[in-house]
Design a protein around this nucleic acid. Structure first.
Lengths: 117, 117
DNA sequence: CCAACCTTGACACACCCGTGGTAAGGTTGA
DNA sequence: TCAACCTTACCACGGGTGTGTCAAGGTTGG
């Protein structure tokens, strides 16, 4: 077996996630490690780096795993992406007023507690 | 006042949403009606169409308002979009196996109950 | 052989989302 | 004036998300 593949608890230690969350992240399709012949998860350098940058991505923008999972769906289901794009394209024209982006605060409030904790 | 602008309860009636949800959708930045001088929401034909197609968009793909709200953030915050794209681009190469898309079922399970109800 | 790993599955818990309701108050039109 | 609208701001509540923990069992290395 390659010496640079870590088990789930070792990977948890070096990335800051818990082993529980590594399984959760895998189930969401975000980081899927290879498996040993007997089914053990094996995290290589690429997966470890991916887990660290995932943490940064979430913290930097105040989003959650769910959002990243949805972005994954947008990449992998072109009809979904196209349908969403089409809906936004039909946005009614109201060019004046460029409001204080209140919806932005609204969207970000959802994770403010998490970030504070 | 233009005759083709409906109040919130009238708009609720013709679109199938509740008045409560129309306010919620507005707060999420998805459909923002104009206001009368005294602050009443005025839904024009464009907004009404938008509300109907929003309902179809959610039903057709098993997603929620939260997902559409996140897609809106992706459109309006280029740095967020770029960061998410960059994270996916760094996906570790594992070209074989093209697995049964289990993550897809996982992502869609979240709304299966809603669709059934 | 056995301790120390790993696996999947389930229960639990706090918090957030979607939705309804209600209260307190402003607007409108007959 | 006054009934019937509208507004914002709360409380409530079922179900989903993110996280921990535990049980029952397979794997591994000394």
């Amino acid at each position: 077996m390659p010496t640079d593949a870590l088990t789930i608890h070792e990977a948890a230690e070096t990335t800051g996630w818990s082993a529980r969350m590594l399984r959760y992240i895998e189930r969401a399709g975000l980081v899927e490690p290879q498996r040993s012949p007997s089914g053990y998860r094996l995290y290589g350098p690429a997966e470890l780096q991916r887990l660290r940058t995932l943490r940064e991505l979430l913290n930097a923008h105040g989003i959650g795993l769910q959002e990243v999972g949805f972005a994954l769906r947008l990449r992998r289901e072109p009809q979904l992406r196209d349908a969403v794009e089409a809906w936004f394209e039909a946005e009614p024209r109201r060019p004046e007023h460029v409001p204080a982006p209140d919806w932005l605060r609204f969207e970000q409030e959802k994770h403010s507690k998490l970030l504070a904790a």
